[in-house]
Amino acid sequence: MTLTFDPTSLAKYGRLTLIARNLVEGFLTGVHKSPYKGFSVEFAEHRQYYPGDEIRHIDWRAVAKTDRYYVKEYEEETNLRAYLLVDASGSMAYKGKYPSKFQFAQYVAASLAYLMLHQRDAVGLILHDTHIRRLLKPRANSKHLLQILRALELAAPGGETALAPLWHQSAEQLKQRSLIVILSDCFAEPATLLRALQHLRHRKHEVMLFHVLAPEEIEFPFTRWTQFRNLELPTDRKLVDPARLRKEYLANFERFCNDLREVCGRTMVDYHLIRTDEPVERALGLFLSRRQRQR
């Protein structure tokens, strides 16, 4: 897969509609073999027969006409319901050299919405910080895309996060079985997240967790004395010598990521760490590969 988009260059396009369409179409153009093609009722195209293909899929009429073996491929019909659960808490506002984590989550969410609607899947949106700010039920029509994008565009990160209660609340509210794509930095106690994810899984939801992190949060490259101001709680400030603290920080951070991965593993949640310095297509690729594995 060729990575063609730099996330920083996307910011200048502004509107998510355009960005999402460009991303998805560009992405799809680059993929020669569409993962969405399968064998269904609606014919898509012929392709040459290869040993191993089922004989029942051979188009005998075409054999008669051309004296060659072709198999018929059909458009897949899906009834996927998906929720994009986007964290808009204060900590998502962190911005280092690259776009903020929230901006990155916006691009990914918009792209996924476009992609899924393009495939006529139903997509919904949950935006939250301390509370659920916006909840859009899944729809499969193209007008719905605009609602989703508009909701994403108008959102701004802020407020304190309490992820687990929100996820519990979401689990309670979403009655139908759905694919839940979570875009969050997950800065909460992994133990509490475990229970929330278990709750979602208990409700038969498929969960895909995109763990959005800034490279600075992963590498902690600061060297000079620095005052860190809490994005979620402005009164919380820490003046430290980062160089002295780095080892301890990285250990803490790695432990957290490992715990989170373990939590996801235990709850059969598809976990992906995405960095804001990586192209958005990577998230799309991860999503599609998951969809393919599901078939």
Binding site: A93, F222, R224, W225, Q227, N230, L239, F256
Partner: peptide, 18 residues
Amino acid sequence: NRRRYDVVDWGAMQFLQV
């Protein structure tokens, strides 16, 4: 040195807790 420092708005505060 302590008087001359950078200011960073930071999200991952819990990892600074040593």
